[in-house]
Structure formats: C-alpha cells, structure tokens
C-alpha cells in the first residue's frame, strides 16, 4: 500500500474543498483522478505530496504518517510534476534534470558519476537526451514537460504524482507522454498517480480511477466501472455517448453538443 487516506478533510479559508475522503492506492498502480473543475483534484494531489496539510483526517504514505517525513526524505520517495512549469532562468535541460538529485546531495558535494548516470538514464527514458544542452526557456511545451518528468525521475521516486501532464499538448505529445509514463509504470514499477481531464486517456491507461464530485468521492474502480454514461452525466451535467473500444475494451467517450 502506497497511500492510505482516511477521512481526509481540507478547508481553505472556511471554504470546504475536500470532505470525508477515503482512498487507498496500491504499489505499482497507474491511478487517475478525474472530475469537473474545482472539485479538489489538484488539492488532493498536493495533499498527497505533502505540500498542503490536511484540516482533518489522515494520510499514510508507505505505512507512516505523511507528516513524519521531513522534506528531504519525502523528496527521495515521491516526485511531483506540476502543470505550470514556467522557468525564466536559462538553465540547460540537463541542469534542470540534475536538480532532481538535490535531495541526495549535501551542501558542497559535487555530483558524482552515479548522479550523472542517473540523470542520463532519466533523460533516455523520457527521450530528452537530444535536447540536453538546450536552454529550458527555448523548449516547446511537450519537450519541457518531458524534461520535468525526467527531473522527477532523477529523484528515484517510488511514486510519481502528476497534475494534468498532457494539458496544452498536441495529440502526438499527449500519447507520447502517456506512453512514457506507462512504460515507467510497467518496467520500473513506479506508482503513477495523476490528475487528468481527458477521460479517454484516463480510461485507456489507468488501472483504477477516482471520480471526484464537489470534494467527495463519487466513484472508484476500474475504468469500465467509473467511466459510464450515467456517472459522467451525473457529475459533469453533460450527456455523453460511451462505447467499448473494440480491440482492447476500454471505455471510449464521445462528447455531444447541447445545441446542435
């Protein structure tokens, strides 16, 4: 068990964001969090990453209370890829990925050969080796996102938390990022937890899905169990057509206009 969450409540200036949430994520799972805007998906992810503190309730991470970990310990076990990666200092992609080694180094310690090997392999896994010497400020959105994932991998995490990793990318890059994550998940046994808006991608890649509605769990389970016409209509107030992808059987969703 990577995460065990009990009765999690989170309030922000007396506005309730998450209410009585229970959730567990298994080791090695590819887990997605879906739901409408403003239902607390990103908040939940930040709580799991230890950046926000719960108002009430409990988050256990790898068997221990999340609060017991100091920032450095945490940074060696989990990594976070956020949605907005704006960087205005012209670091090279390689230097950015090298920062992923921060939690393993002392103040004046110079990176060892091992650190550089880990960085190189992280860049290979994310296909960013060819842009290693380019400035992060000159990269396209998709390239920058992959560099940020490489930085997260350089932390050698058991869990990778991602906040909408495919937002703002074209379809080629979307599949590219998701495939890279899938390979990491299956080959390197990295547990993946992500917030994602694209229900087709969520349905295709996830082992399990959490559907949030107004800060509460609406449904959890396999993609077929969660992504149903009834659930989606209820939570998103939108009529959709869902059928089965003929070859692999994951739910396939078609959006329908309200006026046409």
């Amino acid at each position: 068990m990577i995460f065990e969450i009990e009765n999690l409540n989170f309030e922000y200036s007396s506005h309730i964001v998450l209410k009585d949430l229970n959730l567990s994520v298994l080791k090695g799972e590819f887990f997605s969090i879906i739901g409408p805007n403003g239902t607390g998906k990103s908040t939940l992810l930040r709580l799991m990453a230890g950046f926000l503190k719960p108002s009430r309730g409990n988050i256990k991470f790898m068997g221990y209370h999340l609060q017991k970990f100091n920032p450095l310990e945490l940074a060696r076990k989990r990594a976070f890829v956020s949605q907005d990666n704006f960087i205005n200092f012209p670091y090279t992609a390689y230097e950015i990925v090298l920062m992923g080694r921060f939690p393993y180094l002392r103040n004046f310690q110079i990176e060892t050969k091992e650190d550089h090997d880990i960085v190189r392999s992280a860049m290979e896994k994310t296909s960013t080796t060819h842009i290693a010497t380019r400035s992060i400020t000159d990269l396209s959105g998709g390239e920058r996102q992959r560099v940020m994932i490489a930085k997260a991998l350089a932390q050698n995490p058991s869990v990778l938390l991602l906040d909408e990793p495919t937002s703002g990318l074209d379809i080629n890059y979307q599949i590219d990022i998701m495939d890279h994550l899938r390979l990491l998940n299956r080959h390197e046994k990295v547990t993946i937890i992500m917030v994602i808006h694209d229900l087709n991608l969520a349905g295709q890649y996830s082992d399990r899905i959490l559907l949030l509605s107004k800060g509460r769990t609406y449904a959890t389970g396999s993609p077929e169990e969660v992504i149903t016409e009834q659930n989606i209509e209820e939570v998103f107030s939108l009529k959709v057509n869902i059928d089965k992808e003929p070859e692999r059987g994951f739910p396939r969703l078609m959006l329908i206009s309200r006026v046409l």
Partner: peptide, 9 residues
C-alpha cells in the same frame, strides 16, 4: 512549490 517537492525547506 517545486522547491518543496525537491526537498527544500
């Protein structure tokens, strides 16, 4: 936020 995730207090 990114610094926090990398272990900076």
């Amino acid at each position: 936020e990114a610094s926090h995730y990398l272990g900076v207090e």
